[in-house]
């Protein structure tokens, strides 16, 4: 499969997964302390995380914007998702450069994955960007700092849960031999 088709299919799969299934799952870690936030896991930034290594930053930004606006259209949050996603798309190259031993241009025709990065670097890469995405998203969504504890709890709980869902996605959709399908 060409790299364009593969990424387009991945975009569709992730979006359908997010919009049709994950958006319907409203999660809460504990029921009893009733101030505990409820949230839905966001897996769609994974599309930005899994784009090929050698993609240029402008294209990355545009793709991030498109991903975010698609989410916004479906969830009635004009610009919120797009704002957070464009930010992580902008920072992706820098994070990858900091984490990988070789230059990015040496990974021709490859995408970031657990196999060619290793578990720990990939989790740091994904975890950092997801956390950043959630911080920006929930801060703008709530837009008041009177209840910082609640905001931080919501960010922490939902980014950990999103990471769990992302790991499950990767385990499910990664082919054991050859490149990602």
């Amino acid at each position: 499969m060409s790299i364009y088709v593969r990424n387009f299919l991945r975009f569709c799969i992730i979006m359908l997964l997010q919009l049709l299934i994950l958006n319907k799952i409203t999660l809460r870690w504990w029921l009893q302390p009733s101030g505990f936030p409820i949230f839905i896991p966001y897996v769609y930034p994974l599309f930005i995380l899994l784009l090929p290594f050698e993609i240029t930053v402008p294209l990355l930004l545009v793709l991030g914007f498109i991903t975010g606006i698609t989410m916004d259209t479906f969830m009635n949050t004009a610009g919120l998702h797009a704002c957070a996603t464009v930010l992580i798309a902008y920072l992706r190259t820098n994070v990858l450069n900091a984490l990988l031993p070789k230059n990015l241009s040496e990974y021709a025709n490859q995408s970031p994955s657990i196999k060619n990065m290793g578990w720990v670097p990939f989790l740091v890469y994904g975890g950092f960007l997801i956390l950043l995405h959630h911080i920006v998203f929930f801060t703008i969504e709530l837009w008041n700092l009177s209840n910082v504890g609640y905001l931080m709890l919501k960010i922490l709980a939902s980014s950990v849960t999103s990471m769990l869902f992302i790991i499950v996605y990767l385990l499910l959709f990664t082919r054991q031999s050859g490149s990602r399908g």
């Binding site: 930004l61 545009v62 991030g64 914007f65 975010g68 916004d72 004009a78 610009g79 919120l80 797009a82 704002c83 464009v86 930010l87 703008i140």
Partner: peptide
């Protein structure tokens, strides 16, 4: 792009 987003949000 961020400015576009922020304009949308503030609208």
């Amino acid at each position: 792009l961020e400015i576009v987003c922020i304009v949308l949000i503030s609208r």
